[in-house]
Design a protein around this nucleic acid. Structure first.
Length: 489
RNA sequence: GGCGCGUUCGUCUAGAGGCCUAGGACACCGCCCUUUCAAGGCGGAGAUCGCGGGUUCGAAUCCCGCACGCGCUACCA
């Protein structure tokens, strides 16, 4: 099948791109790359009422963030355009007419109220909800006449005998009883097609060979299969991806946390980490691979290694992966990221532009200590601004409230730092001076160093101390040390 | 309610009858390293493979039943 594969990602512009949608897109894209073929982006905007301004741009941005490119789509064009469903209405109507002409579709005049009541009654009686077929037997000619003055929808006449079986690339053969199917809507009152019709027409026109979509579509498989059959079109192959679930085992939704793809970017996740994370949600390469690059993914991805059970969207794992990728960044790239995140994360009252040399010096101290980019500002704020006031108890938090030790430590530290002349101020002498406290106090550094962390950065832990003191400068370091000492007086 | 799909360490998964006294990763615990915190190195604990029956010399792997979970059940996609 090399070279002949065509798949598509077909989101609806109803808001921000969902992280689950991004994962679906990733799998489709990786599948196409691995097999040779084209990846199509199609916008499914057939529900006018749910359209949200800016959605399409958000979709583009989300996909591009991960490096997913499409060969055909609304913005890049292609031989099967247009790629926006609202611009393809005639195509759907043409197929609808054909279906109506051959008797596989019929006008339905049932009102929304009647349908709602019907559903209620069916549920009350323990029956399977579904259209009861009231308009099924209407005379086609009369129905056309009525349709001129009365609102109507077009319904597909399902074959209700036997079963429908189709092979799912991930689950194997799936079988449904046709007697349980109902005549679903093809064309709505407003003349727009439903998903089922639009998808059928577009996938056929666009020569899609593999439909890779979420599991929530599995149950509508029989509808699609019968539709293909009615048109005498070759159906594509289907692959229904397992759903993404939250900690409670429910489909990932707003209440599960961040669901917008770009929220992850904005919260400090690297695209390579996010891609890596998403790739292993329901798919695996072998029994040990946990890290993968986009290049490798597009080489080795295959649908038969997608599992059929739900995948837990575990942010902890994403964090671990993100930390891994942050550490593997080369110094220059990391430095630039730090600069960006400092700029947007530090309080506005700190003058901009930030001291570039200071940023450069701080970057390496942060690289091994953050899992997300949004932690950068908090950890290095003390280098750019005065320390906020903190309670004296913080100084002794890690030394069991030993105020006397804290006082001795600070006194010794002040002396040691003062002993380093302004001319000699540099990381090495500062480190030597601070290390000498071990002898002065006759204690291991680890026994008292937390006091200095608090004095210098306002927290008992943070980025490396010696470099921080050196970066702060002699005067500022001394000021902080003295201020801490004063708190103990 | 009906239909569909699913069920292996806490989590994501490997596993397609004997290679499994079930492997990897994250998380967890311990040790080492150490300038706090991390990172890194080493090691540990952790699943009788949802339950119950079969088939077989042999089952996590095949079959049946049950339970539980999720999905669908719209003129939304």
């Amino acid at each position: 099948m090399t070279g002949s594969v065509r798949t598509r990602f077909a989101p609806s512009p109803t808001g921000e791109l969902h992280i689950g949608g991004l994962r679906t897109a990733l799998f489709g894209w990786a599948f196409v790359q691995a097999n040779g073929g084209q990846f199509v982006l199609r916008i499914e905007d057939t529900d006018q009422s749910r359209y949200v301004e800016g959605s399409v741009e958000n979709i583009y941005e989300g996909l591009r963030w991960l490096g997913i490119e499409w060969d055909e789509g609304p913005d890049v064009g292609g031989p099967h355009g247009p790629y926006v469903q609202s611009e393809r209405l005639e195509k759907y109507h043409a197929v609808a007419d054909e279906l109506r002409a051959c008797g596989r579709a019929y006008r339905c005049f049932c009102t929304a109220e009647r349908l709602a009541q019907l559903r209620k009654d069916q549920q009350r009686d323990g029956l399977a909800p579904g259209y009861d077929g009231r308009c099924r037997g209407l005379d086609p000619v009369e129905a056309e006449e009525r349709a001129r003055t009365e609102p109507s929808v077009l319904r597909f006449r399902m074959d209700r005998t036997g079963t429908t079986t189709f092979p799912d690339l991930i689950r194997g053969d799936v079988t449904f009883q046709n007697s349980l199917q109902d005549d679903f809507v093809l064309l709505k009152t407003d003349g727009y097609p439903t998903y089922h019709l639009a998808m059928l027409v577009d996938d056929h026109d666009m020569e899609i060979t593999h439909v890779i979509r979420g599991e929530e579509w599995l149950a509508s498989g029989p509808r699609h299969l019968q539709l293909y059959e009615a048109m005498d079109w070759q159906p594509p192959r289907f692959a229904h991806l397992p759903v993404l679930v939250d900690r409670d085992g429910r489909k990932l939704s707003k209440r599960s946390g961040d669901v917008a793809a770009l929220d992850y970017r904005d919260n400090g996740y690297l695209p390579e980490a996010t891609l890596n994370f998403l790739a292993f949600l329901g798919w695996s390469l072998d029994d040990h691979t946990t890290h993968i690059t986009p290049e490798e993914l597009t080489r080795v991805f295959s649908l038969d290694r997608v599992v059929s059970n739900p995948a837990f969207f575990d942010v902890e794992r994403l964090d671990a992966l993100n930390g891994h990728y942050i550490r593997s960044l080369d110094p220059a790239a990391w430095r630039n990221l730090v600069a960006d995140w400092l700029d947007r994360g530090l309080p506005a009252d700190i003058p901009r532009p930030l001291d570039a040399d200071l940023v450069t010096a701080a970057a390496p101290l942060l690289q091994e200590r953050v899992a997300r980019l949004d932690e950068v500002a908090g950890l290095s704020r003390f280098l750019f601004a005065d320390l906020p006031d903190y309670p004296p108890e913080l100084l002794t938090e890690r030394i069991k409230g030993d105020t006397e030790l804290a006082a001795r430590t600070l006194d010794a530290a002040i002396d040691a730092v003062e002993a380093v002349s302004p001319e000699a101020w540099a990381p090495e002498p500062v480190e030597a001076a601070l290390r000498s406290l071990q002898d002065t106090l006759d204690l291991k550094l680890r026994k008292f160093v937390s006091v200095l962390y608090v004095a210098i950065m306002g927290a008992p832990r943070g980025i490396p101390l010696f470099d921080s003191v050196a970066l702060l400068g002699r005067d500022e370091a001394l000021t902080r040390l003295r201020s801490a000492r004063a708190k103990l007086a």
